[in-house]
Amino acid sequence: MIFGQIKTYAWQAAALALLATALTQTVRLASAKNAHAQTVAAFNAATAKEERQAREQSEKFRDLEGKHRDETDQIRADAQTALAAATADAGRARAAGQRLRGDLAAYIEQHRSAAIARAAAGECTPDTSATTVLADLFRRADDRAGELAAIADEARARGNACQRAYDSARTMSQAAGAH
């Protein structure tokens, strides 16, 4: 009988130990599930925060890109306007030069006619070579000055457009770098 009681106590002790082990494992499992749920929640929160920041950064870059594209388009339009103005100025300068050359040619012709008339009257011999050389030099100098002015105006307009485009790109790059 004692052996039966010991056996019963042994079984009860084993059952209690098994129950304590099961209870401990249940508490550990619940704790692990709770820690897992907290880790998943923290991960999801961090992922959501990163996604939101990435979306905001993407929108910022898209806005910067649109602004830069608009600035570049405006710079291109301004450069075309400046080039058209330079071309028109060069055309007006050529026209003025042609009018001046026409006036000079008329003056030289008048001077020649007067010199020939004086020579015919026996007053002197006509010498128009100096005025012809002077007129030719004036014409060539004026033509070259007009060419150089047109080149300089175009280079200035293109250089200004290039500088403005560079400044716009640098500003966009700096704004993009300052997250």
Rank of each mutant, 00 (worst) to 15 (best):
R101F: 04
Q174W: 07
A84H: 09
Q57S: 10
G97W: 01
A22Y: 00
D89G: 10
K60P: 06
V40A: 09
T128H: 13
A32V: 09
A178I: 15
R99Q: 15
H111M: 14
A48R: 01
A141M: 13
G122R: 07
G177E: 07
A32F: 03
L83M: 13
N44Q: 11
S129C: 06
A85P: 09
S173P: 00
Y9W: 05
D78A: 08
S31T: 11
R62C: 12
S31K: 05
I2Q: 15
Y9Q: 06
A37K: 01
A35R: 12
R76Q: 13
A119C: 06
K49N: 03
R158L: 14
L18N: 10
A141P: 06
T39F: 11
E56P: 09
A130M: 07
R62M: 10
S58T: 12
T21C: 01
R170M: 14
Q98N: 15
T171C: 05
Q110N: 12
I2W: 15
I108K: 12
A20G: 13
D142P: 04
A84V: 04
K60I: 14
R69N: 08
A95M: 10
S129K: 14
E147M: 04
G159R: 01
A161V: 01
F43H: 11
Y107T: 04
C124A: 15
L18M: 04
A22N: 07
M1W: 07
G102H: 03
A157Q: 02
F3R: 10
R62S: 11
V133I: 08
S58Y: 11
D89Q: 15
E109H: 08
D73T: 00
T128Q: 13
A32K: 13
A145D: 05
A145T: 05
Q5R: 09
R164D: 12
K60E: 02
A152M: 07
R52Y: 09
P126I: 02
